[in-house]
Amino acid sequence: MKIILNGQEKNFATPMTLARLLQEMGLGERRIAIEVNREIIPRSQHGAFELKDNDRVEVVFAIGGGSRQMAVAPGRR
């Protein structure tokens, strides 16, 4: 199964839930927010949410920032 995670292609042998993906990526403990195919998936649904082939997953968190951050908005690169 192929997942586009924060713009990078990742391949997995078996289907998985969103919560499982986060665990695999070492993001299980972090305070984050998730979009799958531009839809926000609330934290309470991560465990039940089954990912599909070619899903585009965006994982974001809060960093220090005022204005003029050079990084792009989620989804653009």
């Binding site: 924060n6 070492g26 993001l27 972090r30 994982v59 960093i63 220090g64 005022g66 951050q69 989620p74």
Partner: peptide, 20 residues
């Protein structure tokens, strides 16, 4: 205080100092 919302770097140290 303003904060920015950004993609997480996959594989970064989860214990890294966190703004929150």
């Amino acid at each position: 205080v303003t904060v920015a919302i950004r993609r997480t770097n996959i594989g970064q140290n989860p214990n890294e100092a966190n703004l929150l």
